[in-house]
Design a protein around this nucleic acid. Structure first.
Lengths: 335, 335
DNA sequence: CTGAAAGCGCTTACAG
DNA sequence: CTGAAAGCGCTTACAG
């Protein structure tokens, strides 16, 4: 591996000058600049970024934390972030926390140890009080999940409450009265923090139901996040003395599981049970019946979050505020 | 940020001793070891890994290259790798190449600049002759995609040819005679290398068709990889003078697109057109009709690849050879 | 415009 | 068992 020293020798200049050329400093003699460039390509020189980092410069690397990369929602967001990052010559470190608080903390240290320039959290496990201090070491942007009050970070998300108001209103208008609710939550995760996302969604459901004077039964509250959870929940519904006629879910994956299992149980959708998904994952329109779901603008969310990160990095100031993107309800065949 | 110097001062020992404690060297006085440990926790000390890397030690980081993280096949593989990596305190850098040769090259440099200990390639863009030299800088493992001959790397994949032999045989046994073939290939990708995966799959189809004395029409060869491609291909099929009665595809995504578009065109599956997928992605069994597909053992593939990587890292020798995992055909309702 | 020198935070022979 | 010292590859005031 050639180092800066080799390039300097080869080009007949000092290491300082080589460094200046690399970093596009203005005052370098054009001829020397050329000589250095030639030496770099001839030697196939690649700067050692560990050394650059140690010296305290930017890493041009952003860490993105997600709880589960196999969730199409997260992979879509990551993909969008990556697109922006790549266009600005930034690299992405994917941190799959699997809902582990210690893993999350481990990844946050990347910021502290200057291995990344910034961190984008798409899921959150630890309490905000634990995460918050890390903003001191570099910009943190929240994309999707968010705590009830966060200072010093920008939040990019959708209007979770409005989304659930829309979904609930739609079901009510369609004549459904016995509307169950499934909270998004991975029971295997060690979630410690109070997710405002979950609370906001739920309040959208509750307020709309109350306004319509419809019952909110505790036996109609479920919890889960995966296809398997969806299957389990459908079986729980089958056992209800007092079956709901519709269900609002927190993800298309749960909805898929519900639908698959409903077919097995000869439960017709939407006649016997209406199902609303969340996310509008690619599979939502491929299912039968096609899924009524809340469209999450993953492309826009990911891009906006990364753009916000780049802006934070440039301005060197900590931005605040919440950016709420539109999440329209897509009415298809499952309601 | 406390450094090793602060810890040393705090514990009343030299920096060397602190370093030894960190790296679990044997000969350290128990009392000092304890003192150092105390100092580390009291100061909230985290070693600066850029410095560690620069000094030439392991990074405990592995880069994984995939062409498209939103493809559930890739996210499942990455997830499996991550599971093994995390269990061995390794970290994963996700490199989404988007089929760009220069991006791929850029990521390969991570190995050269010692930012990662090893690289796992799940997709390949550049010619093997370009990639091969990088094995000099650290272990490279191939998982899924592979060139026609590679030295100095281990390959973890499925028996692609056998998978297609099985799929083709199944269709023939079911009485289909006009069997189309869809090659996996992303046309937007700048693929430069001769993928033995694609060749092997195709030869499984060709040989089986020839053995059964069935026609292989060039107008029945399609190309694509996405849901959209599947839709396009179905429309191309509709326009055929001489329509196939079955099609072998290279991914469940294409198959989903085919099925969705077939419904629109009132083409019954499998009566008018039998469809075989590839991968057995989560959605395969949720579609209607449920998809007959080749099950790719993504969990095993990802784990095996990461385990191989850890073994290479430990032994410090470059392993060779191909590990062929079983990929059974799952017969469901689309054939 | 440019070079010599210091220093980023660590590890590892070396000499005790 | 342990410390002083050198060095990993870079960048950045500093002094010209």
């Amino acid at each position: 591996m050639p180092t800066i020293k080799d390039v300097a020798l080869h080009a007949g200049v000092s290491r300082s000058t080589v460094s200046r050329v690399m970093n596009n400093h203005p005052y370098v003699d054009e001829e020397k600049r050329r000589a250095v460039r030639v030496a770099m390509t001839e030697l196939g020189y690649i700067p050692n970024s560990s050394a650059q980092r140690l010296r305290g410069t930017e890493t041009r690397t952003i860490a993105v934390l997600v709880s589960r990369i196999v969730n199409p929602f997260f992979s879509a967001i990551v993909d969008a972030m990556d697109e922006i990052a790549a266009a600005h010559s930034y690299r992405l470190i994917l941190c799959n926390t699997r809902g582990s608080a210690s893993q999350e903390l481990h990844f946050l240290q990347l910021l502290r140890t200057k291995q990344v320039d910034g961190i984008i959290l798409a899921s959150i496990v630890n309490e905000w009080a634990i995460i918050s201090p890390f903003t001191e070491y570099g910009p943190i942007v929240l994309c999707n999940e968010y705590p009830s009050h966060a200072e010093g970070v920008a939040i990019i998300t959708i209007d979770q409450k409005q989304a659930m108001v829309d979904a609930t209103t739609h079901l009510i208008e369609k004549g459904y009265k016995r509307i169950a609710y499934c909270n998004v939550h991975d029971e295997r995760s060690q979630t410690l923090f109070d997710s405002a996302l979950a609370t906001d969604r739920y309040s959208g459901y509750v307020e709309t139901m109350k306004k319509a004077e419809l019952p909110i039964e505790s036996s109609w509250r479920f919890i889960g996040h995966s296809v398997e959870d969806g299957k389990r929940i459908l079986n729980e519904i089958m056992k209800c003395d007092d079956r709901p006629d519709a269900i609002l879910t927190g993800s298309d994956e749960i909805a898929s599981g519900l639908i698959a299992e409903a077919k097995k149980n000869n439960l017709r959708i939407p006649m016997d049970l209406a199902v609303v998904g969340f996310d509008n994952q690619p599979s939502a329109s491929l299912l039968e019946p096609q899924l009524t779901t809340v469209h999450q603008p993953t492309l826009e969310m990911g891009k906006a979050a990364m753009l916000q990160m780049l802006a934070d990095l440039k301005s060197d100031s900590r931005s605040n505020g919440t950016q709420l993107l539109d999440a329209p309800l897509l009415i298809r065949k499952s309601t």
